[in-house]
Nucleic acid binder design. Sequence first.
DNA 1: TTGATAGTGAACCATCTGGTTGACTAATGC
DNA 2: GCATTAGTCAACCAGATGGTTCACTATCAA
Lengths: 122, 122
Amino acid sequence: MRRLLIVNHMVECYVRRMNALDSTFAALSHEARRAILARLADGETRLSDLAGPFAMSQTAVSKHVRVLSDAGLVTVEQRGRSRYCRLNAAPMKDASEWLSDYEAFWGQQFDNLARYLADNGD
Amino acid sequence: MRRLLIVNHMVECYVRRMNALDSTFAALSHEARRAILARLADGETRLSDLAGPFAMSQTAVSKHVRVLSDAGLVTVEQRGRSRYCRLNAAPMKDASEWLSDYEAFWGQQFDNLARYLADNGD
DNA sequence: TTGATAGTGAACCATCTGGTTGACTAATGC
DNA sequence: GCATTAGTCAACCAGATGGTTCACTATCAA
């Protein structure tokens, strides 16, 4: 049993890592999903409790959780009739490291406009 | 002329900021667009030179650049018959700051599996 | 002037996304 | 046993995405 769980987990990780950054960034690109992650940062939460604050059906929230789960950002565990969702921030680390490669360019945010104006202004 | 450019820039920024993180993360969620950004980190590049290494039409690359441009990650400037693309990493800073809120959780990547196995294993 | 180059726009296509509703399964509590 | 609660699944929908091809405009160079 334990071995099967580990193998399943490894297979899922392998498939996901093929384009892990794709699915991580895609999962983060929706306001509702970022809100779900923020909520889970406070601790494990049942799916139905997650759905509460949102103006959408529980089915829709369930789909969002599925997207987060496929991206490895959330783990879901069935206990009784409830599904408990837990934050798994590991994929965020890779995303953050990818972004940090561009840190040197963050200070230049107005350079492009300034240069364009210098060339074309008035 | 200068004033018009600045107003246009402000309007574009305002509209974009409405869901800036959405469009930033969405723009970053495609391998080809991340490759384009990596290329632009080496300096300004013509659109046709960007298209070279990709196994897709120039039209498709043009569409990717449009997505990056709409997200404010790239500025495009027409000079002669060429379009010069330049990296604008400013939106990445916001994305990175959002991610850094979860930095405290990055160390827990195997906790969930371990806990699950402890509860259900064998 | 003529031809090559850079790039967009329009039309089309398949697939994905984000949402709905309604029927269904499974666990819980009385 | 029976009603309630938690949640998924299937079907459906509108719109976005990612790609193509073809026609077109505009610039450059001989």
